[in-house]
Structure formats: C-alpha cells, structure tokens
Design a protein around this nucleic acid. Structure first.
Lengths: 345, 345
DNA sequence: ATGAAAGCGCTAACAC
DNA sequence: GTGTTAGCGCTTTCAT
C-alpha cells in the first residue's frame, strides 16, 4: 500500500504532478490536442490511469460554458396522457442510446401543469444545465416552444411544428401520407364506406392524418366523412349515428389504444371485427398485439424518430450552422388481423 | 434603452456592484442567511430582479461539491421490458413532481445492455453530475446496485432488496401480503382450486407474491400449486396440463399485461372469464381497463412509491443520517370484472 | 511542444 | 453584519 494518502478526489493537478507536466498539458491531452507530442500524451494518460482520474463536469462546464447534456421535455399529464402512452418511454430510451454513444447526458423536464413544466424548462436553461432540448410532443400554440424560440435556445421537435417551421429542427412522419396509406389499405381491400375516428381536436398529427384519409378517399371517388371523436357522450352519439346511417365497412382510427376502445365498442354493438368492420390504426405500439384480433396498424418508427432527434440536435450543438435540418421518417403498414377484404365486394 | 451594454450573462459580481455590496453578501442573500440584515437582503434582491440574475449551477456545484440533481436509473431493455411497462413513466413523472418542488433536477441513466447502463451510471457519478440515484427496478444480483453500494453512493431502491437490506433506502409494497390478498380475494369468492401464474423466475417481486399466495391457500386448507410461467412452449404445456388436471376456478396472475395474455389464451380454449375461471392480477395499470372484462387487480400505488423514493432520497442527501429509511406502501384490491363468486360454490 | 497564470461564477473562512 | 480573499477543477491565452 502506498502510504501517501489518496486525495478524496483526484484532479488535473494530481495528474500533472504525477506525470511531471503542467496542468495545461493534461488538459490538452484530455482533448487529444495536436499540440502535444505523442510521448507526453502517453505519459499523461498513464498517470490518469494510475490515479483513476475522471474530469469534473462542473468544472469543465464552468470553464467551457457548455454542459454536455440535453434536456428532454415530456408532455404534461393532460396532453396525450404520457404515462399511458408507451411511445414516450421508447423515445427516451432511444435518446439515451444516442446520448450514451456521444457521451451526452440527459436531463428530464416534467410537470403536472404547463406552468410547472415551463418553470422546469426555464430553470434548466437559466442555470445552464443543458445545451439544448428535445420536445417529445408537438402541440398547437405550445408556450414551451414559444419560450425556447424566443430565447433562441437550440431544440429539436418530435412532430410537426405549427409555427416557426423554418426556424426549427424537427423530425416527423409524413402524417398526411400515413393517413392516406391507412385509408388506401382499406380501399385496396375493397372497402368503400370508410370513416375516420380521431383522438382529440387539438392534436396536429390527427388533423394531418385526417387530411391524408380525405386525399385517399377523394382519389378513389369515395365519400369523405367528417372526423369522428370518441370521448364524450356526444361523440358516442355521433359515432353511433354514423354507424347506422353509413354502414361503414372500414374505419381509420387515430391510434392503437383508441382502436382497442373502438373495437370493444363495436363488439358490444354486435359488429364483428374484421368480419363486419375492418380497423386500421397508427403507432404499432404494445397495444396492437395485446389481444386478438391483433391490430393492423401503421408503424411510425418511433425509435428512429427519437434517434434522429437526438443525433440532429447534438450535431447542431456541436456545429451550429444556419440551416436547421428537418427530417421525415417513413412509415410502414403492418398488416395483422383487423383488416380483411370486404365481403361481397 | 440603457446604453450600457448588458453583459452576456449576469453574475453575482454584477449584482454586488448594482446593490453596492460584496459578492459574499449576495451569495448569502441567495441562501437567505440569517447573517444578513433584512434591509440589505431587500436591496440585493431588487438588484437581482433588475438584472435578471440566476445563479449558475456549474459554479455552485464546483464550489459546493454538490449538484442538486438525482439520477434515475431505468432498467435495461431486456428486464421487464420497460418500454412496454407503463409503470416506469408514471414513476418518472412522480419523481419529477417531487424534484420540481424541491428544486432538484433529474438526470436519466439508460442503456440497452447492463454494461452500457453501468457505464452511464458510473460516468454520472464520476463526473459528479448527481448527488444520488433512484433505482426504478429491483433485480436479484444486480451489478449496478453492487456498484452503488461498493462506492457508497446514496441511492433509493424501488422494490425489495435481495442483499444489503439494512444498508439501503428502499420503498416497496409488501409483496408477500399483496400476493396473499390476491389469493384471499379469490377464496372469499368461494374459490377452492386456485393457481398462480408468474412472470419470470428472476423477479424478486414474483417470488414474494407467490409466497403470499401460498400463505393464503395454506391458511384456508387448500392445495398450493407450484408457480406456472407463461412464456415458452414448455410453459404453455404445463399451463394446459394444469388446467385439465386441476380444473382451477381462480388464477392469481403476475401482472395486468400477463393477465391479458392469459385471458386471451383461456378464451381460445373456450374457458369463459370470469364465468368459468376468475382472474386477479397486479398493478392496476392501463392494461387493466383496456378491454372487457376489465381486470380485477391489486393497485400497488406506484405513484406513491415513486414519490416516497424521491422524497426519502432527497431528505437523506440533505441530512445524511446513519439510519436508512425503509418504507412499505400499502396495496389495495380493485374489484372489477374478472373475479366472480364461484358457481355452485 | 510545453508552462505560467488568469479567469469561469460561486462559496466560505477569515477579517473587521 | 459585511467585506476580502482564497479556493473549487478546468480551459485558454500568452509566453517561451
């Protein structure tokens, strides 16, 4: 055992002493600066090894004015019920993978209310805890986004921006096209009377998908029906009416979870899925294969979305260029059991 | 407009100058130190207000040797499939609430593999990014936990520790008791032939619940059956055999999601739930009320678990005492549609 | 190619 | 009560 007492925390100074060089040399070795000769680098690295040195983040941050961490902003409880939506965790995990690779850290901003969330975001930024943010959701007129934009804080948006389109990094699916793909899938299976069941009126995604649905039906010379919701008693009445009047054979549904609810509702109403009514939804989440009939659904490739968001944001932080990348991740129809060829079609 | 150029970033020095005091006075005002007179505090606060000052975290950390942030450790993808398990996000959200209140920040540690996760945790610790951790899962022989323990890093465990019981803060349900409650619920409904369907053999929780199940059945002088799994083809065979030989009228199932799978399987096999077989499971997660029959299940109060974990950890960080708190959060039987009185019982 | 030294923004011991 | 000042651990001119 070495008698000299190990310092509580080994610093760049200790390494410098051990290697017989100046602290600046150690610092440069850390960044693998070309100014330092290979020989000394080796010496320094050995000293680091020996002493078990790891740079202190806070000190680096202070000197650098950069934290190597990105803030991930979860939606508040009321919006899309993140705790209920498995997509968010998947996204976080993928962002984690990218961050691990790039030696970035993740800080999380959450809140029960918009105000709380905004405070959290503001605090993280003011106290210089993060270099940039990833917004996991996209809402119309989002105050958080306005804040980020106004303060010129770098961020990437998962979803489609309602404003500042040209001044934000965003990663999204082509929601309109995926709406069209969904409807097309039904049409290709011979369906002619097709409805659209949406989530909530505030979701940008939903609107786009509905447009895609309309595109497909118009192209096929079929009747485009207004978007139905499935939440309030009024919604149910409307849905019920729609079923009776239109006798649809196919339904495009906002997401998997909603599809499960619709499915239940239809079965209660003695409609068999897919025999009487076919269903296609979005996301290909856990819910899609939970119980039979397994859902035919559109995979939006969340993991890829999240991965790109992290990668693009980090790249932008490292070399801030004037151009802010936008990226569209393709979707994919996953055929399972809820869509079948229309009978007698 | 003031002609004097606003400094890029306003520091304690600027505030001191503005208020006509020393930096230390500002610093003390920040912590509301009793050493400073109310008058000067007011002056200083006004100056802060005027300049829009916010303390720099990195600088505080460096001087304090404390970050006001806790690391939250998600399980790796292979264990309990966190991305599929809605409980984790709920926990994170609750931890977020507590952290927001206490002005703590959350850093996230994730990884696709145990090694990656461990690296992430180690890095966070070495670089002094967090004061402590919350482990969202509890696995037997977890290398991460060993690391935290060996390095004497403060952490709170959600779940039951397999080792170091007396040297760790943990928050858990009484899993054994909840297993008993589940079985008792069935017994009270007149069931006599009751089986237990578990998740995977590696889960500590599962073992405990199974013990509780055994307790209940033994107390009621009923036959205790070995734990069944429901994963591999062999498991299915075993389950099938069990059904035929034992003709159970009730089943205790490891968690809601598994219960959904069991339910499907039973229905395929022409067993009606709950008419032929009653089902009770654990967690009261989204899955419980996704489709009819809604699951009778045991609410483990995840939110409370998570909240306590955060609260206890933070308290411990602030006043590290010798005694490490343990806490048991009560469970609650939520009766819905999958348990009914046994016929002809 | 390397070293000395002046910060980065804040805290705390020590003076008064 | 309040000010002075020496760090916290690292980066980065500016010398050499």
């Amino acid at each position: 055992m070495n008698l000299r007492k190990m310092p509580m925390t080994v610093t760049i100074k200790d390494v410098a002493r051990e290697a017989g060089v100046a602290t600046s040399t150690v610092s440069r070795t850390l960044k693998d600066s070309p100014l330092i000769s290979e020989n000394t680098k080796v010496k320094v690295r050995q000293a680091m090894q020996k002493l078990g040195y790891t740079p202190n983040f806070a000190a680096q941050n202070l000197a650098n004015k950069s934290t190597q961490t990105i803030g991930v902003i979860l939606p508040v409880g009321t919006m899309g019920n993140p705790a209920q939506n498995p997509l968010f965790l998947e996204m976080i995990q993928e962002i984690g993978v990218v961050c691990n690779e790039q030696k970035y850290m993740i800080s999380l901003a959450t809140g029960k209310t918009m105000a709380e969330l905004k405070d959290s975001v503001r605090l993280m930024h003011q106290r210089k805890l993060v270099d940039g943010f990833i917004l996991l959701y996209s809402e119309a007129k989002d105050p958080i986004r306005k804040f980020l934009h106004d303060e010129k804080i770098p961020y990437a948006l998962l979803g489609k921006p309602d404003v500042y389109e040209n001044e934000t990094i965003y990663i999204d699916n082509d929601n309109r096209l995926s709406g069209k793909s969904a409807a097309d899938c039904l049409i290709q299976h011979g369906h002619q009377r097709i409805g659209y069941v949406g989530l909530t009126p505030s979701q940008v995604v939903d609107k786009e998908r509905y447009k895609g649905y309309s595109d497909a039906l118009r192209d096929a010379n079929l009747t485009v029906h207004p978007e139905l919701y499935f939440e309030t008693p009024t919604d149910f009445m409307a849905f019920q009416e729609f079923l009776e009047e239109t006798q649809p054979t196919g339904l495009v549904v906002g997401d998997d979870r909603l599809a499960l609810r619709v499915l239940q509702y239809l079965q209660l109403d003695k409609y068999k899925v897919p025999d009487d009514i076919s269903l296609i939804s979005f996301n290909n989440s856990v819910f899609a294969t939970l119980s039979h009939p397994f859902l035919t659904t559109i995979d939006i490739h969340v993991q890829e979305l999240a991965r790109q968001a992290a990668a693009l944001l980090i790249r932008h932080l490292q070399e801030p260029s004037a151009l802010l990348p936008k990226m569209i991740v393709p979707h994919e129809v996953i055929e399972r059991e809820t869509v079948m060829r229309v009978r007698g079609g």
